[in-house]
Amino acid sequence: MDPELVAVVAVILAAMAFDYTNGFHDAANAIATSVSTRALTPRIALGMAAIGNFIGAHLGTEVAKTVGDGLVDLPTGVPSLGIVFAGVLGAITWNLITWYFGLPSSSSHALFGGLVGATLFATVGSVQWDNIINKVLIPMVVSPFVGLLLGFVMMVAIMWIFRRGHPGRLNRGFRWAQTASAAAMSIGHGMQDAAKTMGIVVLALYTGGFQSSSEHIPEWVYWTSATVLAAGTYAGGWRIIRTLGRKIIDLGPPEGFAAETVASSVLYFNALVLHAPISTTHTITSAIMGVGATKRLSAVRWNVAGNIIIAWVTTFPAAAFFACIIYFVVRPLFS
């Protein structure tokens, strides 16, 4: 059997496994606030998030191109496919660790860290550091601050606009509004996270010599990545949903609506305008913190937030570390 074909299939299967873990790991991004405020039942919320992810995957082409062509330069051949394989498995390892502890870390940064770590360890190919800095590291730092600030501003605006409203009627109204904001959030998640898997599949096809362009995305890649992400989302990541929905602040329907609206807006802007693969986890979590800070600073459980921030900071190097170990093990299989 053709070794290039076997290696490409192995990488694609690993990418789909990552896609699935990304789905249940990041399901909380789209639905945690809606579930915690009882705007939606858990299964309806997960189903809606799965559909939104499927739709969003078809809108994230530019993000996929950034991942597939803009992070690492690898020569064609089986050894390079071993690097991609190890990078993806490194990301899966970190996803499972953070899921076990209920920490909403970034699947995106785990994937980027895994690719960079395996490439550096293998000394085959090179890392496009300008793109890593401009499209990964800077957004990694900036997007949480933007989410925090906009979440605060959005919630202050809602409190002022509806200051004379009846609390019961307002809560019922915002529960309905959360259906729309959660749907927007799930589409934004699909635009960002399904696109990253698509980028890995395209990178594997190009590196394995099965297509001549690293930017062309076959239609089957859209459908497969979207379907697997949707399936993973529907499986649900309840540990992280509890962290985001209940442990950072006590959310009501207005707060949930504000956080989801801000986070989805930031995701759309980065995907459609900047073509930057940002973290949906960082964005929604920081928006929730910003919304909660409008009550009083002590309303945010900063000890929980601190653990989340530590997970954010360690994700990139931790995934890189695991990818290096995995590459050392699998390298003979891709020689």
Rank of each mutant, 00 (worst) to 15 (best):
L205Y: 05
Q178S: 11
F210V: 03
G208C: 04
M191Y: 07
A204H: 00
Y206E: 01
A177R: 09
G199F: 00
A177G: 15
G199L: 02
L170K: 14
H189M: 11
I200Q: 09
G209I: 07
G199H: 04
S186M: 08
I187N: 09
Y206M: 00
T179P: 05
H189R: 09
L205I: 00
M191C: 08
F174V: 11
R175Q: 14
W176A: 13
A184C: 13
I200N: 11
D193K: 04
S186Y: 09
V201R: 07
T207D: 06
A180R: 10
A177F: 15
I187K: 08
G188Q: 07
M198Y: 01
M191P: 07
F210I: 02
H189K: 06
S213Y: 14
W176T: 09
Q178H: 07
N171I: 08
Q178G: 08
G209S: 06
A182Y: 04
H189F: 05
M198G: 01
L205S: 02
A195D: 00
G173A: 15
A204R: 00
G173P: 12
G173E: 14
L203C: 04
G208H: 02
R172V: 12
F210G: 01
W176F: 15
A183Y: 05
G173V: 13
M185G: 00
V202D: 09
A182P: 03
G208Y: 01
I187R: 06
M191R: 08
R175G: 12
D193M: 03
M191E: 13
A194I: 03
S213Q: 15
G173D: 13
M185K: 01
M185P: 01
G199P: 02
T207L: 07
A182G: 05
A177I: 12
A177Y: 13
A182L: 06
T179N: 10
F174H: 10
V201I: 15
S181C: 04
A184D: 02
Y206V: 01
T179Y: 12
A177Q: 11
A184F: 11
Y206D: 00
Y206L: 00
H189L: 11
Q178K: 10
T207G: 06
M198A: 03
A180D: 06
F210Q: 08
S181H: 05
A195G: 01
L170R: 14
A194R: 03
M185T: 01
S212F: 04
G188E: 04
A177T: 10
W176I: 13
L170M: 15
Q211K: 04
R169D: 13
G208D: 02
F174Q: 12
T207K: 02
K196S: 03
T207W: 07
S213F: 14
M191S: 10
F174P: 08
A204P: 00
A184T: 09
N171M: 11
L203I: 01
Q192L: 13
L205A: 02
F174L: 12
A177L: 15
A195Q: 01
G173I: 12
G190M: 09
I187C: 07
G199T: 00
N171F: 11
M185L: 03
L205F: 06
Q211F: 00
A184P: 03
V202R: 08
I187W: 06
L205E: 00
T179S: 11
R172H: 14
I187D: 14
G209L: 06
D193G: 04
G173H: 13
L170G: 14
I200K: 12
Q211H: 04
R175S: 15
R169S: 15
L205V: 03
T207V: 15
I200M: 13
R175I: 04
